[in-house]
């Protein structure tokens, strides 16, 4: 498996990070190095090993069905770069 220019532009789109054309090859090289390095895991025998899904052995706590939060429109929009009347604004989405 090799992480080339095309793969970089695909994942850069998935991650919504604009990568200038001129950076694609360089970045592909850097990422490919890292990927080649992590591929050494292939040599570990993991037959019959369950992937780790939690650290420790706790059970998931659950909250009660009680309204304890909200009613803080000013707080949740206080840091918004662009907002109006308590809405966040984003470039118009055309469906």
């Amino acid at each position: 498996m090799s992480l080339d220019r095309e793969a970089v532009s695909k994942i850069a789109h998935l991650a919504r990070i604009e990568v200038p054309e001129s950076r694609l090859d360089g970045l592909a090289g850097e990422l490919d190095n890292i990927i080649n390095w992590v591929e050494q895991l292939a040599e570990v025998n993991t037959d019959n090993v369950e992937p780790m899904t939690r650290v420790g052995d706790r059970k998931m706590p659950m909250r009660d069905d009680v309204v304890t939060d909200g009613e803080k429109q000013a707080d949740v929009t206080a840091n918004a770069p662009v907002s109006q009347d308590g809405f966040y604004l984003v470039p118009k989405v055309v469906e």
């Binding site: 009680v66 803080k72 949740v76 009347d85």
Partner: peptide
């Protein structure tokens, strides 16, 4: 049908003013 959201304590009821049934969790702060 529940009083509060799946992963936060804000209300699920309809028709509230915009972003008022929103906690810091719902806004992914």
């Amino acid at each position: 049908v529940s009083n509060a959201k799946l992963f936060s304590g804000s209300s699920t009821s309809f028709g509230a003013p915009q972003n008022s049934h929103v906690s810091l969790v719902d806004a992914a702060m």
